[in-house]
Design a protein around this nucleic acid. Structure first.
Lengths: 109, 109
DNA sequence: TTGTTTCATTGCAATATTACGATATAATTG
DNA sequence: CAATTATATCGTAATATTGCAATGAAACAA
């Protein structure tokens, strides 16, 4: 199979899992952290920064772009990437709401 | 391949991606939400609640247990599951720190 | 002891993900 | 135009994930 049965879950649950999945690879985490760290757009130094082959980085960027978390801008021969603020903020709200629930106070375990 | 090159990333990046990966399936999100919603341990009604086959649920529970996010207690013939408060709290801090970074104010994109 | 119930494990088929070489595309330079 | 640079896409091999039927194991009930 390898195929999640998304139709049996709520939209919210599927959304959370889609966001989580994109963070489920250290290369994508590293790309995002780099975008946060350097206070400007990324224009090309990602391949040397991360250490994976160029097609691999391109593929990871595509997944981040597909979810809307980053956006790219063609700048001559290179492409500038940066966080999509609105979408990131939206995702953050959803994820934090999931993570920050009150833990039931049942000491049966 | 299908194999992440974890050795090229920091421990923190790998940790974040491992936590995220476990949330990257709606069934595991649903299990956790159910654990939060019902204010007590889960003792057996997960299979009927989620709607996947029993071995599938068992497998998802195992992954959550492996990361330490839930713990189980044998209660007669059934097993009681609940959130592991300390580990959840720890994970939450790491994930929120990652999600809640200040977004660079560069409007080049 | 013989079921019965509940959950875990095994084994396997279907599908997804990861990584990268080769190649394509698109803008720029000479 | 030809060469260069930067990125995307294609194709494919290696590995991971998902789901479940079959089976096992452990506690309980009769």
């Amino acid at each position: 199979m390898g195929l999640a049965k998304t139709e049996m879950f709520t939209d919210k649950q599927n959304k959370i899992s889609l966001f989580a999945k994109v963070f489920g690879h250290p290369a994508r985490v590293a790309i995002l952290q780099y975008l946060f760290k350097i206070d400007t757009c990324i224009c090309g130094d990602l391949v040397s920064e991360i250490g994976l082959a160029q097609p691999t980085i391109s593929q990871h960027l595509k997944e981040l772009k597909n979810l809307g978390l980053i956006k790219g801008n063609v700048e001559g021969t290179s492409v500038c990437y940066c966080i999509d603020k609105d979408n990131w903020s939206n995702m953050k709200d959803i994820m934090i709401k999931f993570l920050d629930q009150d833990i039931p106070n049942t000491d049966c375990c």
